[in-house]
Amino acid sequence: MGVQFSQVFPSKPTFTSNNTPIQAGKIILITGAASGIGFELAKILYGKGAKVYIAGRSEEKARVAIEAIQRDVPQVDGSALIFLPLYLDDLTTIKGTVEIFQKMESRLDMLFNNAGVSQPPVGSLSQQGIELQLATNCLGPFLLTSLLRPLLENATKTAEPGTVRVIWTSSQVVEFSTPPEGMIMSQLTNPPKDPVVNYTNSKLGNWFLAAEMARRDGRNGILSVAQNPGAANTNLLRNARWMKLLSRPLLHSPVLAAHTLLYAGFSPDLTLENHIDAYVIPWGRIHPGVADNLRRAIDRSEDGGSGRAKEFWEFCEKATGEYA
C-alpha cells in the first residue's frame, strides 16, 4: 500500500520547469488545456518557447486561457498559443480537426491526451451512441492519435530519440478497482449503469492504449506512456459533486499535477527501451511495482500475459475505423 499512499500524498516534485529543456521550434498539442492541469502545463511550455495548441470544444474558453497565460508569462522566441477545435465525443469531427492542424503544421513533437470526462449522468452517450466516458476518454483520443501519427513520425526524423512522445491520462482508480481479469470486455458494448465502473474502464483503456502504442510505434521512434496525474482540484469531477466535496481534503492544486505530465513528457528517465512497462505517478516518477493483474492484462499472451491491452486496442480500431 506504500506506493498507493504516496500517490495520494506525493512528495515534492523533483522534475520541474527548471529541468525542462527549452522548447523553441517544438510543436505541442494539449487536449483540454483551457483549464485545470492542461492549462498549467500549457503555461509552463509556453514559457519554454513551444508553440502550444490548445485543443478543445470552446473557443471562448480557450481564448480566455490564452489571454491569461500571455498576461502571466513573458513571450520568448518561438512561443505561441493557438486554439484548435476538438470534439472528442463526436468521431465524425476528429478527421476535420486533424486536417485543420495539418494545414498549419507538418510535424508534431508531443501530444498530451489530457482531456476527459468523469461520471456524467447515467446513460450519457456520445454523438455515435457510445457510453460517453469510453467515447471521450478512449475512442476520441485513439482516433486523434492515429490520424496524427504521420506528423509524429515526421518529427522523429530530426528529433533526439525518445523525445517525440504521446502522453495518455489514466487514474489511480484503476489500481483500486480493476477486476482480476483486467477488463470485462462485454462492459464496453453493454455498459453497466454505474458511471464509476465505466470511468474505471476508460482510464484502464488509456493505460492499455499507451502500452500498445509503445509496442507498435516505439520502433518508429515515438515514445508512448500513461500517467496518473494525481488527485487535483479541477473541473473533472463537475458531474460528481458529492465525490468532489467529500474528497476535497485530498485534492491538490492543478499546478502540482501538471508536474506529473511534465515528467512524462520530458524526463530522460523514460526511454524507447522502457516505455512499454513504464507508468508515471505523481508528481513525476515511474511506478515501482504495478499489480500483477494489471501487468498480466498489459502483457501480450506470447509474453505470459492475457493480451487484454491488445484486445482493447483492436476494439478501438474497429470502433473508429470508419471515421479514420
Rank of each mutant, 00 (worst) to 15 (best):
A50N: 02
S79A: 13
E273V: 08
L29M: 13
I281E: 13
K61F: 00
I37R: 03
P195I: 05
A210D: 13
T14N: 08
G221R: 06
G25R: 09
S171N: 07
V255M: 10
L86Q: 03
G321Y: 12
K310V: 04
I184V: 14
S17Y: 01
N18D: 14
G25H: 06
Q187D: 14
N154Y: 01
H252Y: 02
L246A: 08
A42P: 07
K193D: 13
M110I: 12
T16W: 02
L250I: 08
Q119V: 10
L237H: 11
E153G: 00
K203R: 14
I298V: 14
G321Q: 13
L262I: 09
D269Y: 05
G49W: 01
S301M: 09
V290S: 12
A62M: 07
F208S: 13
K51W: 00
T158H: 06
N154K: 12
S146E: 06
L132N: 09
A291T: 04
Q75P: 11
N190W: 03
C316F: 07
M213R: 14
Q227R: 12
R248A: 14
E212T: 15
P249M: 03
G49D: 12
I27N: 02
C138I: 00
A68F: 00
L91I: 10
V64Q: 10
P192Y: 03
P195C: 06
K203S: 08
F112S: 05
G36H: 10
A231I: 15
F266G: 01
Y53T: 01
L148T: 03
D72P: 02
T20S: 01
A226I: 04
I276P: 02
Y87R: 05
P195M: 14
A210T: 10
T158L: 06
W313Q: 10
E131V: 07
S11H: 08
P150D: 06
M1T: 08
P141V: 00
E160V: 11
S202K: 09
K61R: 15
N235W: 00
I27K: 10
N293H: 11
E160I: 13
R300N: 15
Q227E: 15
K318F: 04
V174N: 04
L86Y: 03
N220R: 12
I222W: 03
P191K: 02
L134N: 07
D292L: 04
I286H: 03
K51E: 11
R57S: 01
Y263F: 15
V164T: 12
V98I: 12
L270T: 02
I54H: 00
A34S: 15
A264R: 11
F112N: 04
T16H: 01
R219H: 04
E99D: 15
A240L: 02
K193I: 00
A240N: 10
G321D: 15
E59D: 09
L152G: 03
